[in-house]
Structures are given as C-alpha cells and as structure tokens.
Simulated assay, not measured.
Amino acid sequence: MTSVVQGRTVTLVARMRAYPDGPLVDVTGLTITITPIAGGAAVVGPTSVGITHPGTGTYGYPWATPDALPKGDYLAAWAGTYLGDPVTADEVVTVLARPAAGAYASVDDLEDWLGSTPANAALLLVRASRDVNRALLCAVYEVDDDGLPTSDAYLEALRMATLEQVAGNLGAGNTSGLGRTSGGFTLGRLSVQRATGGSDAASPVKIGALWEQAWNVLQQAGLTGDGPSEPGYC
C-alpha cells in the first residue's frame, strides 16, 4: 500500500502485462483515475496528462495531492489497451493528515494511535519530533524542499517514532513533552535511562531522548547509529 501526506506528491507506478505474470508490454490509450474508496466523485481523471513512460510496460503518475484533500484511502486505477484487449492495474493509496509545522505526525494520527486526543496534542507532537531529530544527527538521507525525507519508508518511520515518543511520554506521566527520566547508564554516546517508580522489569526504558519503542522504529528503518557521512560531520 502506498501512502502520502496531504499537500505532498507521490509517484504512482503501474506495470502493464500482456497477461497475468506475462511480459511487460506497452499499452495504448492509458489513463489513470483516482477515486475515494469510501465513495464519491473521482479526484483525478480519468486522464492521460502527466503520465510518464520510463520503460517498456512501466508507467508513472506524479500525484500532487491538495492540502485540503480529505484523508483516507483512494483507489488509483489504470486502464489501457493492448492489441485491442483491455489492460488494467490498480493500487490503494492512503492519504494521511498533514502534520503541524515542526512535527512528523498529525493530531489525527495521534488520535488514531492512542484512541483519544490528549490535551495540547499539537505541542506534544512538535516536542516529540524534536526528540526524534536528536536521534537523527548522524543519519544520512535525501530530503525535499521542506526538509523531509524523500523516502516514503523513512517518512513513515519518523511519523511512527513521533507517535511512539508521545505515547511513551504520556505513559510515564509526562504530559508536557519536556524533560528526561532519572537514573540509567551511558553506552558509548548513548544515554540509557529508566523511568522512576515501578519495578525494573516493568519500567520503560529511554535511549537518549527517545523511549525504547520510538528508538526501535528508527533503528529498524536504519536511521540510528553512525551512517556514512563526511569526515567530521558527526
């Protein structure tokens, strides 16, 4: 499944085949139509304008989503012909709510994740995003004009790490998004801390400024530790 944040552009890709699992083939009269799965009129097309053709049987469409496009799932459906026979392809695209300035996740994201909206949710998300940024100081990845990763996988990792950071803060009783827990130890350049109160087995763990679950999300995406960089960069 493909996802895109409101107001951003995602390139949709279709690979057209003569028959299922057959060779890629060029088609004629290719169009794309994007429709809300929940129902309603198409938000794109059917249109052939903007469709690219980078290789045999492979087509792309850069969908610049409007800022006000309702969040939710959309069906991107491709239709063309090959030797007079119809050829189709489709995929589901999830449009995510646009985060507030300075945050990697939106209030809507947080409500979906927690099942409720905490007080000062937007502020918590901005502060959690700053914590996430501290863990990215040695990560190397391409960014767009807004300073966000061009990789959908990295963008999703930052979003999920931010949500986990807010959840960790709230779970520890930190409703402001500020401060650290006391105690812990240092491992190389990482500071590992335990929350006060409760047994050691049940106490949540912090790695640097991040709660363990938020750190795990970034680690699994390859965004922690020392990545390749210019000498003296980190």
Results as ranks from 00 to 15, higher is better:
T181F: 07
A77V: 08
T181A: 13
Y74M: 10
D146H: 00
G39C: 04
A103M: 08
G29P: 10
L30P: 10
M16E: 05
G45F: 00
Q6W: 13
D108H: 12
L69T: 07
N120W: 06
G80E: 04
A79F: 07
A139Q: 04
T94G: 08
D152K: 12
G227M: 04
G80S: 09
A153T: 12
A135P: 01
M160N: 08
P20V: 05
P204E: 01
L96Y: 13
T9W: 14
L178Q: 14
G208P: 01
A38W: 06
V126M: 02
G208S: 04
Q219I: 03
A79G: 07
D26C: 07
T224P: 08
D226T: 08
N133D: 02
L123M: 03
E156R: 13
C234T: 00
A201R: 03
P228D: 05
V44N: 00
D90C: 10
G177C: 10
P70S: 08
T11V: 15
S199P: 01
D112H: 14
F185L: 15
T186F: 09
P118K: 07
G183V: 12
P86W: 15
V143K: 03
W113E: 07
L187M: 13
L75C: 11
W211E: 04
E164H: 14
L30Y: 13
S116K: 11
E142D: 07
A38D: 07
Q220Y: 08
D73R: 15
P228V: 04
A105M: 11
N216E: 04
V10N: 11
L158N: 08
R98M: 12
D146Q: 03
V140G: 01
L218K: 05
N120H: 09
N216W: 03
V93Y: 11
P204L: 00
L155T: 09
P149W: 03
V192K: 11
A214L: 01
P228E: 04
D21I: 02
T224L: 10
P20W: 05
L223N: 05
Y19Q: 05
A105R: 13
G197F: 02
D112Q: 15
D108I: 14
L155Q: 12
A64T: 11
V10M: 11
S176M: 09
P228S: 05
T224Q: 09
D85W: 12
E164C: 06
G222N: 07
L158T: 08
L136H: 04
Q213I: 02
D145M: 03
D85S: 10
A42P: 01
G102V: 15
A209I: 06
D108R: 13
V92Q: 13
G227I: 01
T47M: 04
A68M: 03
T56E: 01
S3R: 14
P46H: 00
D109C: 10
D108G: 14
G72I: 15
L83F: 07
L114F: 08
P118F: 06
S182T: 15
T162K: 07
A100E: 13
L83Y: 09
G50R: 12
S191Y: 11
A128N: 00
